[in-house]
């Protein structure tokens, strides 16, 4: 199981980070711009969707999840699943009151 090579990293580049940064700035602009428009119930959903896309970019590129071994992604999945369970079951109480 031991993996002692600590230089197994992908070859680093600056370019991808700058592209992701630009994408993040654009998404920030979009989320501010659409915040003024009233989508009714979808306003929050839109904001959260954009925030999720931004987080996904940060997680996969800035935090290297994409180049790490699979177990890291599984870990993140487990943590998010736990939070999701908590949210869903709590709303099972509050939204059917």
């Amino acid at each position: 199981m031991e993996n002692h090579s600590h230089s197994e990293k992908h070859t680093p580049h600056y370019g991808i980070y700058i592209i992701v940064w630009l994408a993040l700035l654009i998404l920030t602009g979009v989320t501010v711009a659409v915040a003024g428009i009233d989508f009714g119930g979808l306003t929050v959903a839109t904001a959260l969707l954009i925030a999720s896309i931004k987080s996904y970019l940060v997680l996969t590129i800035f935090m290297h999840l994409k180049s790490e071994s699979k177990v890291f992604s599984i870990f993140v999945g487990v943590a998010l699943l736990f939070l999701l369970i908590s949210f869903v079951l709590l709303f099972a109480d509050y939204s059917f009151m």
């Binding site: 920030t28 989320t31 501010v32 915040a35 306003t43 929050v44 904001a47 959260l48 954009i50 925030a51 931004k54 987080s55 940060v58 997680l59 800035f62 935090m63």
Partner: peptide
């Protein structure tokens, strides 16, 4: 340290719309 810093960023990514943009 970088991972920690990016997480701080991610949390802000959610705080921002939820507090500032729901007017």
């Amino acid at each position: 340290a970088g991972l920690y810093w990016h997480l701080v960023d991610i949390i802000w990514i959610f705080l921002f719309p939820l507090f500032y943009l729901i007017t």
